[in-house]
Design a protein around this nucleic acid. Structure first.
Lengths: 109, 109
DNA sequence: GTTTAGTACCTTGCGATACAAGGTATTCAA
DNA sequence: TTGAATACCTTGTATCGCAAGGTACTAAAC
């Protein structure tokens, strides 16, 4: 059993939450997100991120706007929609619940 | 987007950790685990649990012993092996890392 | 003008896994 | 002996992270 796979599994499902937390602060394009998550000690691959952003966009939780770059092609900056804000609030609640669960299990019920 | 699905997504990958946390306290059989996790506000289905226990057993992280029941067929009580203890320690570290990540993202980096 | 390097966005195929549904086996009481 | 309760397990489906590969645009080098 390799630890990387386990850790990867634990990150599953957290990614969506983390990305929306990021976008709550400010609009970002893909490489922004990858970099900022890396700064927060979470790795996300391109092949993971793009489909995830597309899905959140399709579900109406994110919108985007094109912005020119000083060097290179234009960038797609994603923003939280109102629905996204509401969904994020629910994710906050879910996160708190998971925190409680783990704490209970650590205490030894 | 329904909340249940969202919550389900966030639980993904946490299950393995939560089950091992449980078994760190005491040996349990399947229904024990389902009940105790439910007490800790986490839902797990039979069809999820049995394959997961089999996998952890196959990977050498869990062992089990049969115990007679006062009513009904014998039960398979799972226990953490030494390897399981070590793996759990790594999962503890991964969990701490996720905690840090979420806190950083919540602060607004 | 053409080529090359860099940046950015996206898709495809694969493996892992949660879950619903269905199946088998054992025990005990009616 | 039959039925209900308990316990263990398997199969099929959908979802998602990830590696690899592909397309498109920009700017600088030649």
């Amino acid at each position: 059993m390799n630890t990387d796979n386990t850790k990867s599994q634990m990150r599953k499902g957290m990614l969506e939450y983390c990305i929306m937390l990021l976008l709550r602060q400010q609009p970002c394009y893909a490489n922004d997100i990858i970099q900022k998550l890396q700064d927060a000690e979470m790795i996300v691959m391109e092949g993971t991120l793009y489909p995830l952003l597309s899905r959140l966009k399709r579900d109406g939780l994110l919108g985007y706007e094109w912005r020119e770059s000083t060097q290179g092609p234009p960038r797609k900056y994603y923003v939280l929609t109102d629905d996204g804000q509401q969904a994020l609030a629910q994710l906050d609640a879910s996160w708190e619940e998971i925190l409680r669960t783990v704490n209970i299990l650590k205490m030894g019920n």
